[in-house]
């Protein structure tokens, strides 16, 4: 009985973990006016930023999370790497000349997001 309960509990927990981390819907924001605020707190909010090809866009990052994992913001396809002091806005400017999905992540590659250029 004990064992059955443990198995059932384990399977449900694995399913819960799966659902919790992989089943989330990414918050997508379409940038209309060339500027977007991104909150850096336990990840990136929003984590998916849609912008138009050729449109100059300022991504304004505000890190509220003291976790040192999030101190660096890296957008490798645009060769951008910025240090984010806590509670201080840091602006980055991009003008994508090709369409596609360009991932960004923290310094340790633990938290992810992406810029979608259409």
């Amino acid at each position: 009985m004990d064992k059955t309960l443990t198995i059932l509990g384990g399977v449900s927990l694995v399913a819960l973990i799966w659902w919790f981390f992989f089943g989330k819907r990414e918050e997508v924001i379409i940038v209309a006016d060339g500027k977007i605020d991104v909150l850096v707190e336990g990840g990136y909010k929003p984590s998916v930023i849609k912008i138009k090809k050729g449109q100059k866009t300022i991504i304004s990052l505000l890190r509220k999370d003291p976790n040192s994992c999030l101190e660096e913001f890296i957008l490798p396809d645009f060769k951008i790497s910025k240090f984010l002091p806590v509670n201080q806005k840091v602006d980055i400017e991009i003008t994508p000349d090709k369409s596609g999905e360009f991932g960004f992540h923290c310094g340790m590659n633990m938290f992810h997001g992406k810029v979608v250029v259409e």
Partner: peptide, 19 residues
């Protein structure tokens, strides 16, 4: 404490890290 802080802020965002 920093491990807890990082875990909490990650979980709120449904993300996980080494912490």
């Amino acid at each position: 404490w920093e491990f807890y802080l990082a875990t909490w802020s990650g979980l709120r965002n449904r993300a996980a890290s080494m912490d």
